[in-house]
Design a binder for these strands. Structure first.
Lengths: 125, 125
DNA sequence: TTGGATTGCTATGTTTTTGATAGCAGAGGG
DNA sequence: CCCTCTGCTATCAAAAACATAGCAATCCAA
């Protein structure tokens, strides 16, 4: 149908479609992880609410990502609106540690940038 | 410098640059997770070896992703070639469960497709 | 010293994907 | 009927990714 990265078919990173690579292909699309994250953090919601949670996603891309995620059985559309499937929640659970890591990561980046800044300052002596 | 998603600056998913969203922005770029994965699975290697491991990445994109990952302190270039940093290994560790999940995911997708196929077959009765 | 072979890219032109914005059609509710 | 909310699609511009060719800087043996 579309260009969904089906395991078993050639995907980015694997001509034989290794599931891991297929998953990376799917999640490596812009906003994919963010959309799943928002749905799992904030609970089921409407298209527009989801768009709002993402702060700056365009409807075209959101729609595209929703299609991907639905086709990937990670998100479904119910009377309550869009929500993660059981499978989607499992995946989102794996994303949780990323949040914690991101804090540490941000600290390192800050330190490094401050160091760089000091170096730059010193160069001006 | 480039358009690296620095935590604290506007990134996809967060105008205030929440670290989690900044990380998603970085990892949500094509090949980002795949490159990190390959480096952590196969160990340090040269640019061309890495390109080979990725099976179908173009040098331009690989170079771009390497820049991102280096700027993100996740990958470094040593005399042994490119290799993940300590921080990069921590992140890659979080990626490991994805591989297991991907197997389950692939199974579900297959089942669903077979069901769909059967439905389609039945429609032909 | 010179002719490969390897490495880390850059250059170029094309195709996809995203992004920004406008707006439409259908389902309620009043 | 009018208004709002919802889930999108249409359109066009910009950015990213892709495919391919090839270059400059090692390195290394002859």
């Amino acid at each position: 149908m579309t260009n969904f990265p089906y395991p078993g078919k050639p995907v980015r990173g694997s001509k034989t479609g290794k599931p891991t690579m297929a998953l990376f292909d799917l999640l490596g699309r812009r906003w994919a992880m963010g959309v799943l994250w928002q749905l799992c953090q904030g609970g089921a919601c409407t298209f527009r609410e989801l768009q709002s949670r993402c702060e700056s996603i365009s409807p075209a891309v959101l729609n595209s990502r929703i299609k991907d995620l639905r086709q990937g059985l990670l998100v479904e559309h119910t009377s309550d609106g869009y929500q993660p499937t059981e499978l989607g929640q499992q995946l989102a659970a794996l994303l949780l540690p990323f949040s914690e890591f991101a804090q540490v990561w941000a600290t390192h980046l800050n330190e490094q940038n401050q160091a760089t800044q000091k170096d730059a300052d010193n160069e001006c002596d």
